[in-house]
Nucleic acid binder design. Sequence first.
DNA 1: ACTTATAATGAAAATGGTTTTCAATATCAA
DNA 2: TTGATATTGAAAACCATTTTCATTATAAGT
Lengths: 152, 152
Amino acid sequence: MRGRGRGPWWQDRLQGTGARITAPRELIIEILHETDDHVSAADVYIRAHQINPSIGLTTVYRTLDMLTQLGIVQKFDFGDGKARYELVNNPNGKKHHHHLICLRCKTIMDYSEFLDEELEFVKKTAGKLSKKYNFEITDHAISFYGLCERCR
Amino acid sequence: MRGRGRGPWWQDRLQGTGARITAPRELIIEILHETDDHVSAADVYIRAHQINPSIGLTTVYRTLDMLTQLGIVQKFDFGDGKARYELVNNPNGKKHHHHLICLRCKTIMDYSEFLDEELEFVKKTAGKLSKKYNFEITDHAISFYGLCERCR
DNA sequence: ACTTATAATGAAAATGGTTTTCAATATCAA
DNA sequence: TTGATATTGAAAACCATTTTCATTATAAGT
Ligand SMILES: [Mn+2]
Ligand SMILES: [Mn+2]
Ligand SMILES: [Zn+2]
Ligand SMILES: [Zn+2]
């Protein structure tokens, strides 16, 4: 059923690129799995460090980068000075969604309602844009900014 | 016709908040006017410095921040490690638009076609979201990612 | 015009997230 | 089991941005 893998879904993805399965990588992915908010590298480091104190912040950065490269993780900048990461589109992971960002307290909320309307709009617009600008569109992001319930 | 202003449009906006009209601020706004791409603080500083070498980078940052606060400038992060700025919605300035971002060469293109479809979609979605999450939506951003003509 | 309170400025130093370096270690194909 | 080499963690470097603080410029009031 699985290609060459003898482990979870993500191990195949790593090995496919020649990357090795290591304890730090396993732990970091596990941590990403367990959280469902938008964590910074430091967030991940703190949690990883509690479980395995030998892990270094550098490795967290490197692993998050690699996972971003592979498309397993998505990297965001919400304007608070540090990058934030989140697992995407995997078994257990979140599905395609967008963000509601509070300009005052910087809270980030996911929403995935109304994807049917979105799909229609995005497909139409992406099609026109890629034709007009000869641009190959592979992804998109939609964000709404404003004031959350507590800040308004 | 103009409120209290005896200068260009933006001077009224500044004075309205109690801010003073200064040479550095005039120059920085002029530079933003003259460019039509997405400049970093350092970009602005270099150009400003050529005209008036006494200007400091700190002032460029402070002025861009202030203009962002006032909504005269929009601040972006396209993932290359430095913030980028662009004049918005002013006489001479660009109108509302969105971005096409090349994941390989990091080129950023503006597009403002198809705003009618967008308006319809955004209005509908924003309405539903603000009701459902009790979130006051004041702005939005739509970005498409992929490969530009030269990189595909 | 002159005065004056204070907003704004620039240089330098500090900050803080991220990246680089490098010697030690762990992984995995053979 | 071995060995080539990918990966690791600590420390240092990097670099965009912010803070500090003494000096200067603005504009309101006279
Ligand atoms: Mn999210
Ligand atoms: Mn733009
Ligand atoms: Zn809020
Ligand atoms: Zn490109």
